[in-house]
Simulated assay, not measured.
Amino acid sequence: MDTNRRGFLGAMGRVTIGAVASMAGAGQSAQAAIDKPHIPHWGMVVDLRKCIGCQACTVACIMENDVPEDSFRTHVSVYEVLKEGGDPAMVMLPRLCNHCDDPPCVPVCPVEATFKLETGEVVVDNTKCVGCAYCVQACPYDARFINHETQTADKCTFCFHRTSAGLLPACVETCVGGARNFGDLDDPESEVSRMLRENEVSVLRPEMHTNPNVYYIGLDAVLDGRVAGEAAYRPPLTVETQPHGEDA
Rank of each mutant, 00 (worst) to 15 (best):
R6I: 13
G7T: 06
I17V: 14
Q28V: 03
P37W: 11
V45K: 00
D47P: 08
L48V: 08
I52A: 11
C54E: 02
Q55L: 06
Q55S: 08
A60G: 12
I62M: 15
D66E: 12
D66Q: 12
P68F: 02
S71G: 07
M92H: 07
L93N: 03
N98Q: 15
D102H: 14
P103S: 07
P103W: 11
P104L: 12
V106L: 06
E112P: 00
T114E: 01
T119A: 04
T119Q: 09
G131M: 04
V136Y: 11
A138V: 12
A143K: 13
R144H: 12
T150R: 13
Q151P: 07
C159S: 06
F160A: 14
P169I: 02
P169S: 02
A170I: 11
A170R: 12
G177N: 00
N181A: 03
G183L: 05
P188L: 03
E191Y: 15
L204E: 09
P206T: 00
M208W: 06
N211D: 14
N211S: 15
N213E: 09
Y215D: 09
I217K: 03
D220F: 00
D224V: 01
V227H: 11
E230Y: 11
A232N: 02
R234E: 10
P235V: 04
P243T: 00
